[in-house]
């Protein structure tokens, strides 16, 4: 376990060095936040039941603050490694391949999230009232939000491993991240918060793993669901997390038999 945690730390350290990247990221996220608030306000027009404008604004700011963990990436080093063949070094270490990549990915995702979220949260909390990020509805809701957020990040990692699997097949990271992110973006409430979708669709999506990444924690934070529902949903996401990791490991195992290392 120690060596996997070592990989986690290594990628955390690697990511945290890039301050300029984080600053420009935060600035972009802030700009998009304002855009989204205007856009969604126009959409909401007459208002949506159970999703007030104030809740929407908070949802948007949380989304921007935790942007780094909302979308799924193929771990940066893994994709370049697959494309240029450095991946072979991952095979000559006495480690499980899936775990190696999983922990590296979580390390860099956590680092880039931590680098970005504070400035956005701070600025969004002092904006004029109509644009302001509100406090969590209650202390229990806040604690559940944190738990759901951590599980969400872990699910993001598990889905990212599917993108790695696709990269193995297609040898192109752009394609595989593209496919995965369209799915996560649409079905996970990144492009449009789930409460703004038709109820029938919501009924299905509420039980899918994609919304567990960010939609669920945000809605617990803004009080869009009561504590009991939140607990049930968190249990569902835990079940998804385990299922996704098991499926991912099996898929990777089968694809590795066919691995070809590019070049030289």
């Amino acid at each position: 376990m120690g060596s996997y945690f070592g990989l986690f730390k290594m990628h955390f350290k690697g990511e945290i060095q890039y301050r300029a990247k984080a600053i420009s990221g935060a600035l972009t996220q802030f700009f998009w936040g304002v855009m989204y608030i205007y856009l969604y306000s126009a959409f909401m027009g007459r208002g949506i039941e159970g999703f007030s404008t104030a809740q929407m604004v908070t949802y948007v700011w949380l989304g921007q603050a935790f942007f780094a963990m909302r979308f799924v990436n193929v771990p940066k080093n893994v994709c370049t490694q697959i494309e240029n063949g450095d991946i072979c070094y991952n095979f000559v270490r006495p480690l499980n391949l899936y775990n190696q990549w999983y922990f590296s990915y979580i390390g860099s995702t956590l680092a880039s999230t931590l680098l970005r979220f504070i400035p956005i949260i701070v600025v969004a909390s002092i904006l004029p009232a109509s644009m302001r990020l509100s406090l969590p509805v209650s202390l229990p809701a806040f604690l559940l939000f944190l738990i759901a957020l951590i599980i969400g990040m872990l699910i993001n990692g598990a889905i990212s491993m599917f993108a790695v699997y696709l990269t193995f097949i297609t040898l192109s990271t752009r394609g595989s991240t593209g496919i995965v992110n369209v799915v996560v973006g649409l079905l996970g409430g990144v492009y449009l918060p789930l409460p703004m979708l038709p109820q029938a669709l919501q009924n299905v999506l509420n039980y899918m793993p994609f919304r567990c990444i960010s939609d669920l924690p945000f809605r617990i934070y803004i009080g869009n669901m009561d504590i009991k529902t939140a607990l049930v949903q968190i249990l569902i996401s835990l079940a998804w997390l385990i299922a996704l990791i098991i499926i991912g490991k099996l898929l990777l195992k089968s694809s590795l038999k066919k691995t070809v290392i590019q070049g030289g």
Partner: peptide
């Protein structure tokens, strides 16, 4: 592998 690297790039 002479043309590849196993060490971590940014640390």
């Amino acid at each position: 592998f002479g043309q590849r690297s196993q060490l971590w790039w940014d640390v």
